[in-house]
């Protein structure tokens, strides 16, 4: 793919969107994990957390394209992307949450950050590799774009998603599109699709979008139906 090709620019836009939706999250988790640490440790925690997030992406990216050439791995990647997309559409669980890492120690924060970095780097790199369609240049571009988002603009990204929830839906749909595309370009499926069912080149991505949006929205609606009583975090009741 070269710069004159419109497909190239579509991929570029897709990659930027993926980085926004999946990268901003990473920085938020790092900041939250370090909240209760003393100032000095907190700064260290954030620095190494961000460093780890970027380093992991670099390492994963260098493997990603080689890996995706292996049979069935693109199909697995596609399934993973569907899951990531559906998860993206779920609201904050009202009283579920994760209760394990309640410790306020440096060790607890490090543990959370490592897990977070690992999960989210994998998310991010699979999606980028899928969108880049075997172009190493685009993969590296995706990586470069994700760095400033993780380091500086996570707050902006959060505000953007709060104000325009449609951004999240678009992001999730985009992951479905990429997943559909990956499923039919795996080394196992590619030949067969090209010969027998070239209409799948557009049908499969469309199905990916529909699957994510429908399952995601359905699950989210079900979670919201069990309406919890309003929880007041301010604790101001003894005043009156």
């Amino acid at each position: 793919m070269d710069i004159a090709n419109p497909q190239f620019w579509v991929a570029v836009l897709q990659i930027i969107a993926i980085d926004i939706v999946l990268g901003g999250d990473n920085a938020v988790v790092i900041a939250l994990a370090c909240r209760r640490l003393p100032q000095k440790q907190r700064n260290q925690g954030i620095f190494w957390g961000v460093f780890g997030a970027i380093a992991l992406r670099v390492i994963l990216v260098s493997f990603a394209l080689t890996l995706l050439a292996i049979s069935f791995l693109k199909i697995i990647g596609a399934l993973l992307l569907i899951w990531i997309g559906v998860k993206l559409l779920q609201p904050e669980p009202e009283n579920g949450g994760h209760e394990i890492n309640a410790s306020t120690t440096l060790l607890g924060a490090i543990k959370t950050i490592i897990i977070a970095d690992a999960i989210m780097s994998v998310d991010n790199v699979i999606a980028i590799a899928g969108a880049a369609k075997d172009s190493i240049g685009l993969v590296v571009f995706g990586l470069l774009v994700s760095v400033p988002i993780i380091v500086w603009s996570s707050k902006f990204v959060m505000k953007l998603m709060d104000r325009f929830p449609i951004v999240i839906t678009i992001g999730a749909g985009l992951l479905g599109w990429i997943a559909g595309d990956m499923a039919i370009t795996d080394t196992v499926t590619r030949e067969w699709v090209n010969v027998n069912a070239s209409f799948l080149h557009w049908l499969s991505p469309v199905c990916g979008v529909l699957v994510i949006i429908m399952i995601g929205k359905w699950l989210a609606a079900r979670a919201l139906k069990k309406r919890m009583p309003i929880v007041d975090l301010a604790n101001d009741t003894d005043k009156l």
């Binding site: 999946l22 999250d25 909240r35 209760r36 904050e92 949450g97 209760e99 975090l233 301010a234």
Partner: peptide, 24 residues
């Protein structure tokens, strides 16, 4: 606004509530 994506899965509820509380 509630947090979305991976944050609620990885961070415990107590700390997320603290974060909302502080901003609020």
């Amino acid at each position: 606004h509630p947090l979305h994506g991976n944050a609620p899965m990885l961070i415990d509820k107590v700390r997320i509530n603290e974060y909302h509380q502080e901003k609020g």
